[in-house]
Computed example of a mutant assay.
Amino acid sequence: MTTRTATNNRADDEVFDFNLNAVQAESDLKPFVFLWASEDDPNRRLTMQHMESLDVWPLMAAADGGDAAAMAGIFREALGKKQWAQFRETPLPQYKLKALFAAYRKHSGASEGESVASSDS
């Protein structure tokens, strides 16, 4: 017995065109750790997941809001809910945010202006 769906007219045992399950990262997806002091902890370290390991769906949704929203979406996803809340508790000058984003992009191997969801990243 074969299984067919409205969007896939191939039987389960037929050849497929691309196996997304088999795709592996081309680089080490090492997390990015940075120091950002809080009022209570002068040595607070925050960890962001490697840019290429982030779920693209919330990133693409954030990008609809423009560059600033896209950057915030990246930080939100990379830090996770708990660390994002901690990160937001401390005032952050724009020049520091730009420097942090540049260092994170460099760590992740993304060039300036390159989309996070880009197939070249």
Rank of each mutant, 00 (worst) to 15 (best):
G80T: 01
T90I: 10
D67K: 08
S119N: 09
E26M: 07
S121M: 08
D64F: 05
Q83M: 07
K96Q: 09
Q94W: 12
A6D: 14
L54K: 00
A63L: 04
L100T: 02
V116C: 05
T5Q: 11
M71A: 10
D41H: 11
K82N: 05
M48P: 00
M1Q: 09
E39F: 07
S38Y: 08
A99E: 09
G80R: 01
L46N: 01
D17Q: 13
L79H: 02
D120Y: 12
G66W: 02
K82G: 11
L35A: 13
N21S: 06
E39H: 04
A69Y: 13
H50K: 02
A25W: 12
H107A: 15
T3P: 03
Q83Y: 04
G65S: 07
R4V: 15
E114N: 04
A85H: 03
I74N: 00
A102W: 05
W57L: 13
N43H: 12
D67R: 09
R45S: 13
D67V: 15
M51I: 10
D120W: 07
E39R: 11
S108Q: 01
E26H: 05
E89R: 11
G113D: 04
W57M: 12
R4L: 15
Q94I: 08
G109W: 00
Q49M: 04
S38L: 14
E26I: 11
A103S: 05
P58C: 10
E89A: 04
P91K: 06
S108T: 02
F75E: 00
D55K: 12
E114M: 13
S53K: 02
M1S: 13
L59Q: 03
N9M: 13
T90M: 08
M48C: 06
